[in-house]
Structure formats: C-alpha cells, structure tokens
Amino acid sequence: MSEVIRVERTKNFTVMSNHHFKNKELSLKAKGLLSLMLSLPDDWNYSMKGLATLSKDGIDSVRTAMKELENQGYVTIDRGRNEAGCYQGTIYTVREVPKGEENN
C-alpha cells in the first residue's frame, strides 16, 4: 500500500498538462527538465547554462534532455541571426504539449 502526502496549493505551485508525464518516449530527465521549465516565469532566459544552475546536473546533461524535448516537439530552439548572418541569440519556445498536438 502507498501513501501520498500533498500540500495545500495556495502559493508556490505550478499547474501544467500531464501530457509529458504520460509520454513513454521521454526519459525521466527530460520530463523533469520540461516540468522545471514550465515552472519558471514566462520571461526567463532558458539558456543551457542557466538551466544547469538550477540543479546538480551539468550542461551536458541539460543539453541531452533538451535535445530529447526538441526531438519530441516540446521545445523549439531558434538560433537567431542578424542581416549580416552573425549570431544574435537563442529563442526557446516551450510547449506543454508537442507542436501540432495543441488541439488533441
């Protein structure tokens, strides 16, 4: 028998879809990273280095989980370039459900 002890959700909690939790194609690491990303403010800078500072995992671990999320359609990474073709920054689009499945 199991027991789950829950807290009252009046402050400091996140509401998100269960989609990624039930996706058997995602590792626990990728599920955890997406959950963390969804718990951050919308204007947070989702850099690999920044995400790595939020856990004991290093940048390589974050990078592999991010690649998994990207491959499954939960994250889109756009490496911006200016008119001269120079790197201008990275834009991360984070989705609760994979791209194209928003209405399913």
Results as ranks from 00 to 15, higher is better:
1 M>K: 13
1 M>D: 08
2 S>Q: 10
2 S>T: 11
3 E>A: 09
4 V>D: 12
5 I>M: 12
6 R>I: 09
6 R>L: 15
7 V>S: 15
7 V>T: 14
8 E>S: 10
9 R>F: 11
11 K>V: 13
12 N>T: 03
12 N>P: 00
15 V>F: 13
15 V>W: 08
16 M>C: 13
17 S>T: 04
17 S>A: 09
19 H>L: 00
20 H>R: 04
21 F>H: 14
21 F>T: 06
22 K>N: 15
22 K>Q: 15
22 K>L: 12
23 N>H: 08
23 N>G: 01
24 K>E: 15
25 E>C: 11
26 L>V: 03
27 S>K: 08
28 L>I: 12
29 K>T: 09
29 K>F: 04
29 K>M: 07
30 A>R: 03
31 K>G: 11
31 K>C: 10
32 G>L: 09
32 G>K: 12
33 L>A: 07
34 L>T: 05
35 S>V: 06
35 S>P: 01
35 S>F: 01
36 L>D: 05
36 L>S: 03
39 S>E: 01
39 S>F: 01
40 L>T: 01
42 D>I: 09
42 D>P: 13
45 N>Q: 14
46 Y>F: 11
47 S>V: 00
49 K>Q: 15
50 G>D: 03
50 G>W: 05
50 G>T: 05
50 G>L: 09
53 T>V: 05
54 L>D: 01
55 S>V: 00
55 S>P: 04
56 K>D: 11
57 D>I: 08
58 G>V: 10
58 G>M: 13
59 I>T: 03
59 I>L: 04
59 I>N: 09
60 D>T: 07
60 D>G: 07
62 V>G: 05
65 A>G: 02
66 M>R: 02
66 M>C: 03
66 M>T: 06
66 M>D: 01
68 E>F: 02
68 E>H: 03
69 L>W: 01
69 L>C: 04
70 E>A: 09
70 E>C: 05
70 E>L: 02
71 N>V: 07
71 N>G: 10
71 N>A: 15
71 N>I: 05
71 N>H: 08
72 Q>W: 08
72 Q>V: 10
74 Y>A: 04
75 V>R: 07
76 T>N: 14
77 I>M: 09
78 D>V: 04
78 D>H: 12
78 D>P: 04
79 R>F: 06
80 G>F: 09
80 G>W: 13
81 R>N: 00
82 N>H: 01
82 N>S: 11
83 E>W: 08
84 A>R: 13
85 G>T: 05
86 C>P: 07
87 Y>E: 07
87 Y>F: 14
90 T>Q: 12
90 T>V: 09
93 T>V: 08
95 R>T: 02
95 R>H: 01
96 E>N: 07
97 V>I: 12
99 K>V: 02
100 G>I: 09
102 E>N: 11
103 N>D: 15
103 N>V: 02
104 N>M: 10
